[in-house]
């Protein structure tokens, strides 16, 4: 891969990568750092990463960074969640999309990642497996569980409506 491939990769994948990171971690500043770090790593491995593997490499790097960050913040989040009273959490939703976004945040981390990779970037199960380090079957299972979870989540809204 050369510098032209790298710069064209910035044009092609930076937005998608950022979108994926924002939706995954819920923090735009942190997402920007993840994306910058990913491209920085790609630059240092310019000679070893092939051009057709660039997208996969970038998403894999961001995915790993998000997972690491999520693990570090897990205890903190659990603590903060325990502090919240039910009245603070309950919200009235009138939009399926909002409810879906809420459901996304409540999903297990791994399910969230695979669903986003699937829906945002249109990756196949095999490609998602390569990015996340999971087998294709595991990816299918996680996606199946995620869909069921989201269906249950927005199903409550459907009943309300």
């Amino acid at each position: 891969m050369n510098i032209h491939d790298y710069n064209s990769g910035v044009d092609s994948y930076a937005d998608g990568l950022y979108r994926f990171a924002v939706k995954s971690c819920g923090n735009s500043d942190q997402a920007r750092d993840f994306v910058q770090d990913a491209f920085e790593k790609l630059w240092t491995k310019l000679e070893t990463v092939e051009a057709d593997k660039m997208k996969s490499y970038l998403f894999s790097t961001v995915y790993n960074a998000i997972v690491d960050s999520a693990r570090k913040n897990q205890r903190k989040q659990t603590y903060e969640a325990n502090l919240q009273t039910p009245s603070q959490v309950e919200t009235t939703y009138f939009d399926v999309k909002e409810k879906l976004e809420e459901g996304l945040l409540k999903m297990p981390e791994i399910q969230k990642q695979v669903v986003l990779l699937r829906d945002y970037e249109g990756y196949s199960y095999h490609e998602i497996g390569e990015i996340t380090g999971l087998s294709e079957q595991q990816v299918k299972v996680y996606i199946f569980r995620a869909r069921k979870f989201l269906r249950t989540y927005i199903g409550q809204l459907e009943v309300l409506i």
Binding site: D15, R19, K23, Q36, F39, L100, D119, I154
Partner: peptide
Amino acid sequence: IFKKTRFEADDSIIFPNVSQLK
């Protein structure tokens, strides 16, 4: 309901200052 579980990419979310990465 199952069909609604699919996410659509929000094109309004774009990376600020892409040129910095180049």
